[in-house]
Design a protein around this nucleic acid. Sequence first.
DNA 1: CTGAAAGCGCTTACAG
DNA 2: CTGAAAGCGCTTACAG
Lengths: 328, 328
Amino acid sequence: MAVTLADIAARADLSESTVSRALSAPDKVNPATRERVLAIAKELGYVPNRVARSLSSGRTDLIGLVVPDIANPFFPPIIKAVQARAAIKGWTVLIADIDERAADELPLARTIRRRVDGLVIASPRTGADRLGELAQLAPVVFINREIPGSTSVIIDAGDGMGQAVEHLAALGHRTIAYLNGPRRSWSNEQRRHAVEQTAERLGLTLVQHGPFEPQVQSGVHAADLVLAGEATGVIAYDDLIALGVLARVAERGLRVGTDLSVIGVDDSPMSAMAYPTLTSVHVPGTEAGVTAVDTLLALIDEPDSGPGHVTLETQLVVRSSTGPVAAR
Amino acid sequence: MAVTLADIAARADLSESTVSRALSAPDKVNPATRERVLAIAKELGYVPNRVARSLSSGRTDLIGLVVPDIANPFFPPIIKAVQARAAIKGWTVLIADIDERAADELPLARTIRRRVDGLVIASPRTGADRLGELAQLAPVVFINREIPGSTSVIIDAGDGMGQAVEHLAALGHRTIAYLNGPRRSWSNEQRRHAVEQTAERLGLTLVQHGPFEPQVQSGVHAADLVLAGEATGVIAYDDLIALGVLARVAERGLRVGTDLSVIGVDDSPMSAMAYPTLTSVHVPGTEAGVTAVDTLLALIDEPDSGPGHVTLETQLVVRSSTGPVAAR
DNA sequence: CTGAAAGCGCTTACAG
DNA sequence: CTGAAAGCGCTTACAG
């Protein structure tokens, strides 16, 4: 069986209490005693039983991460960043993938919260009121969603989306299309809004399509809708949809960047590798993940600190899928 | 505070023992008693404390899943399948992403094993001997790797790779290239071997490049190597590399499927959506995930059952990236 | 600085 | 079928 505190205590001729302190609160113990305990612990190959520790301490040292879809390239960088950052600080991450089933999100979050000390919920698909309630029950940090009274890390698409519209305008596009993301997506509202504002300010005509699921297939479908209209430039809710547009446009024998300019959002690895390479709005997912963990751990330590808000900026990365407007 | 067994016991005027049994071993209790306990539990909103349960039962109801890289499209289907299947059976999954750092794999698996009842390790990057040792310490099921004495779910690439070579031969290709995956990858050995065998049997000349990391960028690099040689058809270790080849070939102004035929492995969603669509060897990731969970749970229940082996088959899916050989 | 004791919330032989 | 008791392995006031 596994080595326990009792084993070390017996060997060191000390009480379990002292051994426990030597291991988890070294400053409350005589240095010499500590050394002896540590030596024996090492010799015996002691590894603390986390379950037992959890039961008495009330802490699990686990944080939960809820994501809409791990297969969506927007999330892996966030997931990796959360895991890496958590690991550095001695925490483990429990991931829940809701597979884009919005109705599963809240139940899953509620279940998992019983196992963890706090939650990071990325791009939640649930209504703000119910998310707010959840945040009452446990330390929660939302990524990419503002919930009144709750703590969140927001990626402000405004700058990047505005730059995208300005970029198209500068290339001579007068009518542009926006391909909406999922119906109840807060990110989509934010992105759409920024596009609308900038288009209006610059006097561009804006056409909208969707909502679309963030999948390549959606873009294939959307491409035909766009090509049936007047728009010469299109901004998609995300890179996946944009990649679908690219594929379909090429398939129809038209040239991306010439016949139709396409912009995505996320700046995912694929965007740099697509053909042609995809102009995209860079979204700092890694930074968001790191910040979310730091914020959450602070919240776990001090549950009564007020709601915090961190905002990260986005920025357009110009590649080959956008070019000067040409006659259709 | 949260409702405990003691609260229910007090309210029902029963002992904690009986309440515990009513909840977790209903057949060991008087049906009427059980009903009463369940009603009160529901009324009070009782949710069992899993940490406490774990400590006394010795079970965590968690299984660990170690994957090389969640951003690699091969793994999300496996991850989702594992999570879904585990959830159905009342288990939660703890995911560890090693981010392709082979050296981190074993330490991570060892750490996480302390928190779970068993492990699924997908496409391990560690040496067989050390994996075998790990399997002595805890119930482990490997996906895509045979370890002597251990249990595994193998996706046999043989059939699919053979079909891929036959497909190219049937299209008239006489010299083909194979792009190797990671150096110590067991999957790569298996795939390469099948390609070599079939090429030899059919009298084709086989050129090899690599090893390459399973990333789009690798394929971009590999494409130039292939185009500098005689091969007219290329089989990549996976879809990501194949997609990189596609992009680079197009970028160089050549036509995929005409100037160069390209085949990937994984049949990931992108392969159906790439332009042109990618001929690929379908790998049953979802099935592998489901089977791995079932196998692991059986192993957890009966640690002494001998090592099991399940083999799943692969199959070529022909799309547009392969065509009859043309003059170079 | 150290020890004895109680407790975290549940499970599970052992009696009755 | 039910209850009292011990135990899972650790933490943490409380004394000394």
